[in-house]
């Protein structure tokens, strides 16, 4: 346990040193603004499009800094050290995913009320949407570790990660968008919330094992 906190502390330090937090947040804001301006020009901007854009932007920006997650450790040999240490590689993947979530998705989620309020979603609804995102976006971080592991050692793997991983975000995105749309209509489908949360938990539970198996392929 002490070791896990030690790793968590240093992984956070590494992630902050990589400036990924700044990049993904800027990317998110720019994407929302560009789409907003584009829709403004053709005079078509509704809550529906905004919700779709928010979900797509959050899934794209969580893929932005994923390539460095294992690649850096793989290149400088820290991953060797992790594999030979007393912790299991699954624990390390778990910690890395949590750090990735804290540094990319969490800042974006806190921005959402600020962005959605001027665009016509009430504060109350946008806070509820943030809550749905808090439940579901950890799964995005965990799933994208699979892509990072698959393209380990591959130059220019960023595009490949998007091709592999974006389709796997679909269940989360479908449920997330539908629930957010229902929220803006002031209807609450508890069943859907529970299913989304369950999906998220399933992803969190199984992906570290799949990712560790894929990482071991690169070592044999």
């Amino acid at each position: 346990m002490k070791l896990s906190f030690h790793l968590l502390k240093y992984e956070l330090l590494f992630a902050l040193a990589n400036k990924g937090i700044l990049l993904s947040t800027s990317f998110f804001i720019i994407l929302i603004l560009i789409v907003g301006i584009g829709f403004g020009q053709i005079g078509e901007s509704s809550e529906k499009t905004l919700l779709a854009i928010i979900w797509i932007a959050i899934s794209l920006s969580s893929l932005l800094s994923i390539k460095t997650m294992f690649q850096e450790d793989f290149d400088d040999g820290t991953l060797d050290l992790y594999i030979l240490s007393n912790t299991s590689i699954e624990t390390i993947i778990f910690i890395k995913s949590i750090v990735h979530w804290i540094t990319t998705n969490l800042p974006i989620i806190t921005l959402i009320p600020l962005i959605s309020f001027p665009l016509g979603i009430t504060i109350y609804h946008s806070i509820l949407i943030c809550f749905v995102m808090l439940l579901s976006t950890p799964a995005l971080s965990f799933i994208s570790t699979i892509g990072a592991a698959l393209t380990l050692g591959e130059k220019g793997g960023n595009l490949l990660i998007s091709i592999f991983i974006l389709p796997t975000f679909l269940p989360i995105i479908i449920f997330g968008m539908k629930i957010s749309l229902l929220i803006t209509n002031s209807t609450y489908d508890i069943m859907a919330h529970l299913i989304l949360f369950a999906l998220s938990l399933i992803c969190i539970a199984i992906t570290p094992f799949i990712t560790s198996l894929i990482i071991k392929i690169h070592y044999t």
């Binding site: 698959l150 389709p167 679909l170 299913i195 392929i217």
Partner: peptide, 23 residues
């Protein structure tokens, strides 16, 4: 190996997405 794992992961998520759509 990598492509096989991709196929396995893909089938899991394709199935999940299908049920999400039909939900």
């Amino acid at each position: 190996d990598l492509s096989s794992w991709l196929c396995i992961v893909g089938s899991i998520f394709a199935l999940l997405s299908r049920y999400a759509v039909f939900f």
